[in-house]
Design a protein around this nucleic acid. Structure first.
Lengths: 193, 193
DNA sequence: ACTGTATGCCAACAAGCGTTGACATCGACA
DNA sequence: TGTCGATGTCAACGCTTGTTGGCATACAGT
């Protein structure tokens, strides 16, 4: 009986509007340039409401950056197609939800955002990689390498806007990058002949 | 006869001190959080001097983010070792000069910094890749993919601080990542059997 | 020695920021 | 109907920011 019945409150719509506006602004401008006033204006409410519902700017960001990678169960994927499945999944996840972009932009300057990013890619991705049974001694490193290529892809395509990466069709990117992830995940540890 | 003799001016030391402090601050805090006041304090001068010598904050950043990748002449490298040479070079360049870190942090929120980043990786890296003679139709894409892996490596290691990437020895990173760059540079275009 | 210019510091400005508290209004429940 | 908490608006606060102009000092050329 810990929770009281979570009856729908009238302010839920406002809360959601704030969160949506916050994600948009954080994704477009980063943590510092995304001002509470601008977010409130986008959500058509008063800045003080943001404070009432989320405490302060850090609290708002923490709520807006809540994120689940929704990684598929890798144990069910044919071992040879792990890379392909992962790239495609990340591209989809990125285009459909700007939370990751917000996190990516903010992580450059905000320690809390960087911490969140570390948690997501160490815990969620690390766990998924561990679950299909590589050598436990190397899973962390393998997951880190996968993260480096995935985040580099996102950074060049969505943040910096490097032309050849922006123009590329998703299918092309999958074809190029999948073998990289595949090797990071299932390839032999280099230097061990 | 265009330039007058560039006699050493007494203020050159101050200019240099400002630039050094600016690079440090921009690298550590990003564009927005690196304040002119803090930079001036680090350089032991008055904030107004920064304005006199660099016009405004954007001008200061533009000067501080001047950067040459100093890519080696790839034409002289054995084709099979291109990836290895490139990763090693970038790791060295990164550890020894915080300008790239400053650029990386700032590019997330500052349009000018993103533009600079695009220029560096499109022009300098693009030119180097083009010079060892791949199919000209694919060089831009190949260079973009290399940039994505290199920047992802830097982002996870120096900005986000993902533990497995921070703990790794440079040699290990080279061993893991070199084959990736090698394939992006010299591998066949995927999907063409 | 005198003058003009380069170099530097100080004080202040206007604008924008996160944040706060007081007050109005609505809706449910007795 | 009267009461009380939830919801929302308004105005203001203290602070930091980039930027500016005025004034002192040091130096170089005559």
């Amino acid at each position: 009986m810990t929770d009281a019945a979570p009856r729908a409150r009238r302010s839920d719509a406002t809360r959601a509007a704030i969160l949506r506006a916050a994600r948009e602004r954080f994704a477009a401008d980063g943590y510092d340039r995304a001002t509470i006033r601008a977010i409130a204006a986008d959500a058509n409410i008063d800045p003080s409401m943001v404070m009432r519902y989320y405490g302060n700017k850090e609290g708002l960001f923490a709520a807006a950056a809540e994120f689940d990678l929704r990684l598929p169960e890798l144990a069910g994927v044919p071992t040879g197609r792990l890379g392909e499945v992962l790239v495609r999944h990340f591209l989809d996840r990125w285009e459909g939800d700007e939370t990751l972009a917000a996190l990516l932009r903010a992580a450059s300057t905000n320690p809390g955002a960087a911490e969140r990013m570390r948690a997501i890619f160490a815990d969620q991705l690390g766990a998924a990689v561990a679950r299909f049974g590589t050598d436990p001694a190397t899973t962390a490193r393998r997951a880190g390498l996968v993260a480096s290529q995935i985040l580099g892809l996102a950074f060049t395509r969505y943040i910096v806007g490097l032309p050849p990466m922006v123009d590329a069709e998703p299918a092309e990117l999958v074809a190029w990058v999948a073998p990289t992830l595949q090797r990071y995940l299932t390839g032999p540890v280099p230097g061990t002949p």
